[in-house]
Amino acid sequence: MTVEALIRAVNNPESAQGLVRNVATLAATKDPAAIPTLVEVLKFNNPGAAVAAVSGLIEIGEAVVLYLLENIDGYNYGARAWMVRVFAGIGDPRAIDVLIEAANTDFSLSVRRAATKGLGYLQWSKVSESEREGQQAKVRDSLLLALQDGEWVVRYGAIAGLEGLSRDVSSESKTLIREKLQLFLTEEAELAVKARCQKAIQTLA
């Protein structure tokens, strides 16, 4: 089937199950022409279809970012949550502000969790050298704030994010992250989160 035919199929599903299948097939084409339709699917309130659309959009990658930033729907909460996952998966630095806001303020813990992970795996080579340090400090502070989240999984995500970020930052910033994690380790109660923190400290050493 051509991309056009697949897009028509997604827009005219015979069943919820059929929709998921059609979205997955469309996503597998990795064709940028599919972007608007896949983004539309994020608003359908169909988790199976949204998961397929998110992985398709992540695969398409960079070409998705601008379209998504221009079409973030401020009123559809569900769609926004899926968009954050797309940004987190692509790692394009143009989405830094969206990811920071999501990591620190989103209502849903799974969105905060995805955003913290995404902040740790941004493509820093795409940021000009003059801006890089400032942007990295912003991301670092957002992740340090997320270490205080009430949900264990967000704190866990923030640690993974800080570990990822530390590969790309100056040695001073890396030292600061390590010190903050060492302090965090003495305050954390959840065993799994503590273990992830120890692992990150070892990686940073």
């Binding site: 913290t116 264990w152 999984v153 799994a192 273990a195 692992k199």
Partner: peptide
Amino acid sequence: KGILESQLQRSSEQLDADSQQLMTLMDNLL
């Protein structure tokens, strides 16, 4: 997380190969 915590209790909170692998699996699901 439940499995990781059981493993950590068995290993007196030492990060052994099993714990490391469980954390890698968890990282990929975040």
